[in-house]
């Protein structure tokens, strides 16, 4: 398909004096808000993504990128529980290193996001679920606008105290499965206090002006994740306002 190439018939490697060479640009960002959802294995990332799709699906055009080896299972779950069309879901493989695919080499995820944005234009929201990873597996800012880190009450009440980049610096920390607290047992007050302390301080322990937010959820009791959905709505409003640019 050489027609379009006629625009630059020869590679001009020697820009004339004063002339700006035509530098190839990455695909322009569309208006889509990109949110990463990370956290350890089994914390409830896919459940949260499905909940958001169902709660926000009426008001927003949403797509999802998954990073799990079991792509077909994730897709089936999102179609069933998130009422999402299958064409709105793309799976990316990570070579067994979930953190690499969301942070060190985001090429495959970026390509998946851009393809969804092009195919489903205009898209309001893309949710990128990372494969279950370590407490320090956070998303690159080159891939997402905001990130949610999901942890699980059943992993023990000491988890927030351990910190790690996800807990200390994700834009939203979700402590999920509060319904399991009596069975663990875990004291939710201790978790709340420790999480607040972790999120009040930035890198190097410098106190943040405003602590980062934390939400406690039980997706089995509130399958629509209303509080997290409200947080996303707030971001959408912010993202759409001209000042955001």
């Amino acid at each position: 398909m050489p027609a379009k190439a006629a625009k630059t018939p020869e590679a001009r490697e020697t820009p004339e004096a004063g002339e700006t060479p035509e530098i190839p640009e990455a695909p322009a960002r569309r208006g889509t808000l990109r949110i990463g959802v990370g956290g350890p294995v089994g914390a409830g990332k896919t459940s949260l993504v499905a909940a958001l799709c169902r709660t926000l699906g009426e008001e927003l055009s949403i797509a999802v990128v998954t990073n799990d080896a079991h792509a077909a299972q994730d897709a089936a779950f999102l179609v069933e529980r998130g009422s999402l069309d299958a064409e709105r879901i793309t799976a990316v493989q990570t070579g067994g290193s979930p953190h690499a695919a969301i942070r060190d080499d985001i090429a495959a995820n970026l390509e998946a996001v851009e393809s969804l944005e092009a195919a489903l234009d205009p898209l309001d929201l893309v949710l990128i679920e990372s494969g279950g990873g370590s407490l320090s597996a956070t998303f690159s800012r080159g891939l997402i606008d905001r990130q949610i880190f999901v942890i699980d009450v059943a992993a023990g009440e000491r988890l927030p105290r351990k910190g790690g980049l996800g807990i200390t610096s994700a834009d939203l920390l979700v402590v999920n499965k509060t319904d399991l607290a009596p069975h663990v047992p875990a004291d939710l007050e201790v978790m709340r206090r420790d999480a607040a302390a972790q999120r009040a301080a930035g890198p190097g322990g410098i106190v943040r002006e405003t602590p980062l937010p934390t939400l406690f959820t039980s997706l089995s009791e509130h399958p629509g994740a209303p509080a997290v959905a409200d947080w996303v709505r707030g971001l959408i409003v912010e993202h759409r306002s001209p000042a955001a640019a």
Binding site: A5, K7, T8, P21, I23, E25, A26, A107
Partner: peptide, 23 residues
Amino acid sequence: KQLLRTARTTWPVPRLNLLAATP
């Protein structure tokens, strides 16, 4: 496609435009 995307930010020179017309 992924290599081209990364190269655009790594070596942003007109030579890469040669691939602009690819499907």
